[in-house]
């Protein structure tokens, strides 16, 4: 396989020096196959004295990341989260020493937390998994509450993120940030985005219960679980400060509807009630719908960003072509639907 510049000999030399604990042997090196925005490598290594250490190495793709936020931003988010009660895999260090850049790319290293992003039975519709679905959803909501109620100012997040001036301005701040990111690298026109931007500004909710730290992408596939508990929350590259409703719009699968014989045991409504109980924050369901549309603008930003390495010739990975064509198309469709384009 090409571009294994992160390979065993490199890592053994690097970790031997960096960990300063004697000769390191890499026992297993695995690249996460499904990642789109960045590369994630899982490393298991042996240290003198029979110790075993599991690490994760994160770096950009050869032509940069699909995500406009930098790798350093992602690392800085992890570092600041250590001052909160949010469970994460501790980020250990950021490597930008030119002598150690694998493939010329900066990277950072974090501890690997034992567990799995998969929840056996969760997606099985059989009734015997109903209780599991509800309990996992509650567990996730408890952890989302930790994020949304943390003291982000004390943890230093204002140093690296745009701060909405007050809760009513959360959506406007997010729109400005995303349009600003797009404008910075846009290489072809998107009139439909311009049309939708007017709609987004006009319909921006002003119901945020507070300005919160947001995770961005969250839910199934984004968190590490062990014995039914979330032990590490991963994938912070889209995190920001804003309305907690936005995170419910980004949530993947962890707010399922569980109903049997006409009785709804769990749904978005029950989930939001439970979340309010544990967080003290009321999230408006209409605001969640709005943030799903705003999420499509975010999708346009990263999908279009994926075209840049192909156009500039800095990376030819086919996955970038998929993201910048099909993913972009569906994101534009979502925006168009909200802006009334299909009703015209």
């Amino acid at each position: 396989m090409p571009d294994l510049s992160i390979d065993r000999p490199f890592l053994e030399r690097y970790l031997t020096e960096r960990l300063d604990a004697g000769p390191v042997t890499v026992d297993e090196l695995r690249k996460y196959p499904r990642g789109v925005s960045r590369e994630t490598w899982f490393v298991t290594c042996s240290l003198p004295g029979g110790r075993v250490r599991s690490l994760v190495v994160r770096r950009d793709l050869a032509g940069g990341s699909v995500c406009p936020a930098t790798l350093r931003f992602e690392y800085e988010v992890y570092r600041r989260l250590e001052a909160t009660a949010v469970p994460i895999a501790p980020a250990l260090w950021y490597e930008d020493d030119p002598d150690w850049l694998a493939g010329g790319r900066e990277f950072y290293v974090r501890d690997h937390v034992e567990g799995s992003w998969e929840v056996p039975g969760f997606t099985d519709p059989a009734p015997e998994f109903d209780d599991l679905r509800i309990e996992i959803s509650r567990e996730h909501l408890r952890k989302m509450a930790l994020i949304h109620t943390c003291d982000w100012a004390a943890a230093g997040f204002a140093e690296i993120m745009d701060v909405p001036p007050d809760p009513t301005a959360c959506a406007a701040t997010a729109i400005d940030r995303l349009l600003g990111q797009l404008e910075a690298f846009q290489i072809e026109p998107f009139p439909v985005v311009a049309e939708a931007a007017g709609w987004l500004r006009e319909h921006a909710p002003k119901t945020a219960p507070r300005v919160s730290l947001l995770k961005g992408t969250n839910g199934l596939g984004e968190e590490v679980l062990r014995d039914g508990k979330i032990v590490a929350m991963s994938d912070w590259e889209l995190s920001s400060l804003g309305d907690p409703a936005s995170d419910f719009a980004h949530m993947q699968d962890f707010m399922p509807t569980v109903a049997r014989r006409g009785e709804v045991r769990w749904s978005v409504a029950q989930g939001l009630e439970y979340y309010e109980e544990v967080s003290g924050l009321h999230v408006d369901a209409a605001a969640v719908d709005y943030y799903r549309i705003l999420g499509a603008l975010e999708m346009v930003v990263f999908a279009h960003n994926a075209a840049l390495p192909l156009v500039q010739g800095t990376d030819h990975l086919a996955r970038l072509a998929w993201v910048s064509t099909e993913v972009l198309y569906w994101a534009k469709n979502l925006l168009a639907g909200a802006a009334g384009v299909f009703a015209a």
């Binding site: 009139p191 439909v192 049309e195 998929w322 064509t325 099909e326 198309y329 534009k332 469709n333 168009a336 802006a339 009334g340 384009v341 299909f342 009703a343 015209a344």
Partner: peptide, 20 residues
Amino acid sequence: IRRHLRRSLEREGALIVPAF
């Protein structure tokens, strides 16, 4: 403008939807 945007997306969709 909205009608144009709809037609434009329909044209683009003809290159996307059957392929993916």
